[in-house]
Design a protein around this nucleic acid. Structure first.
Lengths: 161, 161
DNA sequence: GCTATTAGGTTGCGAATAGCTACCTATTGC
DNA sequence: GCAATAGGTAGCTATTCGCAACCTAATAGC
């Protein structure tokens, strides 16, 4: 059991702190959600989210700095600015959906009246899960840590609990 | 395009704000990561994360209040308290991994020397993805919003972009 | 061309939150 | 008993949040 603790200092090299550096501040994820839903203008984010203008300005700049959104002046109305989702931003969708699913499962607010579906067959998407290389769904108890291949033979050890 | 904006006020009823209410504060996710890795004691979280004691105290209490961790006095040493992951907490693993993956993919810090593997065959787990009901991997462009089944016939509309 | 309006900010200031250090209390080991 | 350990709390400072007011550039109306 004390064994288990040892790897953590190593996996501090994991991407979580880096992700939180970008997305960990208040409002960042809600701005991202709005962006996923087609919002592009400052005033739209502002009125939808009810966020203070200076904070919104700060968050948008930060998301742009980190490449999650792209800031473009609108061609036919140069007062306007468009904040568009980048590919890097789009790659946050699984994380956002996983978080959203969890929040929904554990909240009293019953069900949303809109759900995400596969556009091809209109079937609701599956819950976000952890998968093995062959697509089997894995739970926490099925997982273990192993040394990455670059660092030698993968000598794995069980993930206790 | 303005069409797109309309659904958002409805999906404000989505679980994201609820999830952020619990996990959105600084340190919450890092505490969860430590808990996933077997940390259970106050002093262990404190020394590993380098978080201020009053903040740690506050966050642990908050996570306990929301049922993500369970607080138990240790039987054989009553000075000690154990903060253990609950099932509700464990269900945050997909969200945490998705976020971690994203942070890793987009950070300069090369690769971690430890990776999560399927304990059964020691193969690294697959990246967290969005799946259709039949396990096909879906991208943002493949998705659409539809009214939930409880609210009548699923009249879907394309997710533009 | 003059004025009003709109879009996207910035600035100042008080409130809330984070973080450091020191202190406190209940157990435990000796 | 006495010192050490575990898990906090209290007080103070530094940073961040949030509101309201203001500012500037680009358009729209006339």
């Amino acid at each position: 059991m004390t064994q288990l603790r040892e790897p953590l200092s190593l996996i501090s090299e994991c991407g979580l702190p880096a992700a939180l550096e970008v997305m960990g501040e208040r409002w960042s994820f809600l701005i991202l959600r709005a962006a996923f839903n087609g919002f592009v203008h400052f005033e739209d984010f502002s009125s939808e989210l009810g966020i203070a203008r200076n904070i919104l300005s700060n968050r948008l700049a930060r998301l742009v700095d980190h490449g999650v959104l792209a800031r473009e002046r609108c061609e036919h109305d140069k007062r306007k600015v468009e904040y568009r989702m980048t590919e890097k931003g789009r790659e946050l969708l699984p994380a956002m959906l996983a978080l959203r699913d969890w929040g929904l499962r554990h909240s009293d607010n019953v069900a949303p009246n809109l759900v995400l579906v596969d556009a091809r067959d209109q079937q609701p998407i599956a819950p976000i899960t952890i998968r093995a290389h062959d697509d089997r769904v894995l739970e926490w108890g099925d997982l273990a840590w192993a040394e990455a291949v670059e660092a030698g033979a993968p000598a794995a050890k069980e993930c206790a609990e």
